[in-house]
Design a protein around this nucleic acid. Structure first.
Length: 600
RNA sequence: GGGGGCGUAGCUCAGUUGGUUAGAGUGACGGCCUGUCACGCCGUAGGUCGCGGGUUCGAGCCCCGUCGCUCCCGCCA
């Protein structure tokens, strides 16, 4: 007989009755009846109830066992007595009659009980991650993650993609997030950087004549975390293709994502891969106030600046401002506190507040109620209702600001809050969309200059010759240039960001020149890439869906830590392994480093 | 870097306007119990109220500072 087990704890069934078997696992739960002890033995595969009575010589040993001890039981599989079958357990028709026990590992009193679904504080969970991972929720999530990654790999390979590895110790990339640096021992004062993404490598792979690359790629960014953004490191399904248009990339990626979502959606509906709506960036900012809209939320923001600009509308606070209206269907009957709360929230966000109008029916006519209704005469009110599609019983909130993007942003957040509080967001759907036509550049008001708006390596949607001829005087034209850049958004989470790349070295130099980088500077910083582009670069493009967020959505979790095996805290510490930690003097000396602590 | 929330027994939490000896559940330990599956019953131990300072006759509670976790803003091409 095997030293530890003949079966797993999830395996035994009625057909095994009569067999002598050996099980190993953790004590999930112990029920001591004095003359009868039940032990629920748990392993990766399941739980089996084991039972022992005092006449057995092993009884004393079993009697001492406590939660989370690791035991090996040898005994006979028996039918459960009439009426004691546990329908909740796959193994619930049988139990193990213990004949011998070996204690493989004892456990101290638990700082974090494994049994039960009690919530525990984050630092306790992270310090004792190995215990937390034994618990059903995390154990299930981590297995889901593994299965999703397996499925993604299979789907990519089926589509003709090949997985290649790219370096982890590499060069700092000059734009984007803060790098993690690794000091060089052999080159004093010089540093490797961990890749923020394999961006340049995957482009070089295309230049190198491979096609259809993918990688489950670790990415490192030294930026602060959020619930949906791990500090430090995360994984992307990184992919790149040669000789493709934007449509080709869409056609390759959407089936993989829609497919993997459908596979693990657990009954929720998923947008079919050929029906992801394509929403231009500008439209998204107007209708949803964000570039990652949750399109399950039926609310659509409209611009009503023109209504407040009318001569017959006297509301001075909204004059000469961008005014966005957020329809709140059916919000009319909400109590006053509902409106006050939203208003208070908006003030907390730095807005002047959220004005609102309630539409009511008076003898067949639509009238406005609420604090600012008296400033809006019937004709203007009717125009507003028409634009917003409002009817009696609805409310309309207003976000106004001299800066259009601020008005849009507050409106977007209000839309999300209203959708949640009015229960307008269906919980049984995964709704995908593409956000397309991102602007190539944006105006930096602080420094009075043109900046890249998103990805500097994207191909501008512009005639090549005309682009090459642009100069500073063409500011308005430049700020209107779109890029072949696109995001995939699902239920309000940005799942992936990608682009058709700029593979033309002259256009690339020009693009950087427009953003204020001298030619020599660009040449120096992207020497490798530009050099490659000068030796025969194919048109190429790709994208990189975030694995962690995909798993988070499919697990129904709202925090990435719940789908990460060994996550760090929000402040980027590993409480289990105790990282970061100081280097000793020998290490520092070898690396030619001296630590200068910040002044207090 | 900034704002909000939290921090009391191993764990999860309660703790009234500032007032006697800081409680409960769970876990631990001991006792009883042969059919439970969150087993039940009885008992015992267990506290730097995150830490430091202040106000007060008196602080878990009020004030100041600080640390930790968390959510958000900044940041994340």
């Amino acid at each position: 007989m095997h030293a530890y087990r003949t079966h797993t704890c999830g395996q035994l069934r009625k057909a095994d009755v009569g067999k002598t078997v050996r099980l190993s696992g953790w004590v999930n739960r112990r029920r001591d009846h004095g003359g009868l002890i039940f032990i629920d033995l748990r392993d990766h595969y399941g739980i089996t109830q084991c039972v022992i009575t005092p006449e057995n010589p092993a009884f004393a040993a079993v009697d001492t066992a406590r939660s989370e001890w690791v035991l090996t039981f040898t005994g006979k599989v028996v039918d459960r007595l009439e009426g004691t079958v546990n329908a909740d357990l796959p193994t619930g028709e049988v139990e193990l009659r213990i004949e011998a026990v070996t204690v493989q590992g004892k456990a101290q009193e638990l700082p974090l009980p494994v049994f039960g679904d009690q919530e525990y504080p984050e630092d306790t969970r992270l310090t004792y991650r190995f215990l937390d991972l034994r618990r059903e929720r995390l154990h299930k999530n981590i297995m889901l993650r593994a299965n999703i990654i397996t499925s993604l790999r299979r789907r990519m390979i089926e589509q003709g993609f090949t997985e290649f590895q790219t370096p982890i110790l590499t060069a700092s990339s000059p734009e984007g997030a803060r790098d993690f640096l690794v000091p060089s021992r052999r080159y004093p004062g010089q540093f490797y950087a961990l890749p923020q993404a394999p961006q340049q490598f995957k482009q070089l792979i295309m230049v190198a004549g491979f096609d259809r690359y993918f990688q489950i790629a670790p990415c490192f960014r030294d930026e602060d975390g959020r619930a949906d953004r791990s500090p430090g490191e995360f994984y992307q399904l990184d992919l790149e293709m040669s000789f493709v248009t934007q449509d080709d990339v869409f056609a390759a990626v959407a089936p993989v994502l829609a497919g993997v979502f459908a596979e693990f959606a657990n009954g929720k509906t998923v947008t079919p891969h050929d029906q992801f709506p394509r929403i231009p960036y500008a439209e998204a900012m107007l209708k949803y106030g964000t570039d990652k809209p949750d399109i399950r939320n039926p609310i659509e923001i409209v611009d009503v600046s023109a209504v407040f600009a009318r001569d017959d509308v006297e509301f001075k606070a909204f004059k000469a401002k961008t005014v966005r209206a957020i329809p709140a269907p059916g919000a009319g009957p909400q109590p006053r506190s509902f409106f006050d709360k939203l208003n208070q929230w908006a003030r907390g966000e730095g807005a002047a507040g959220l004005g609102y109008i309630l539409f009511e029916d008076e003898n067949g006519a639509l009238v406005g109620k609420g604090p600012i209704a008296k400033f809006i005469p019937p004709a203007a009110l009717a125009e507003m209702a028409k634009i917003a599609g409002s009817k009696a019983g609805d409310a309309l909130f207003f976000s106004a600001d001299a800066k259009a993007d601020r008005a849009a942003n507050i409106a977007g957040q209000a839309r999300t809050r209203l959708g949640r509080e009015l229960n307008l967001i269906p919980q049984d759907e995964y709704k995908f969309c593409w956000i397309v036509d991102f602007p190539m550049y944006e105006w930096n008001e602080d420094e009075k200059k043109i900046d890249f708006s998103h990805n500097p390596f994207s191909m501008p949607q512009f005639d090549r010759d005309a682009f090459m001829a642009l100069d500073k005087a063409d500011k308005d034209t430049i700020l209107n240039i779109k890029a072949y850049q696109y995001d995939i958004v699902c239920n309000g989470y940005e799942l992936s960001s990608g682009a058709i790349r700029n593979h033309d070295p002259d256009v690339m130099l020009k693009a950087f020149e427009i953003a204020g980088y001298a030619r020599e500077e660009t040449e120096e910083k992207f020497k490798g890439m530009l050099n490659a582009f000068r030796h025969g670069a194919p048109p190429h493009g790709g994208t990189a869906p975030g694995i962690d967020r995909i798993v988070m959505l499919l697990a129904g979790e709202e925090n990435l830590r719940e789908v990460t095996m060994f996550p760090m805290t929000q402040s980027a510490q590993d409480l289990l392994m105790n990282a970061p930690s100081p280097a000793n003097n020998k290490q520092l000396k070898e690396l030619h480093l001296r630590v200068v602590y910040p002044e207090k």
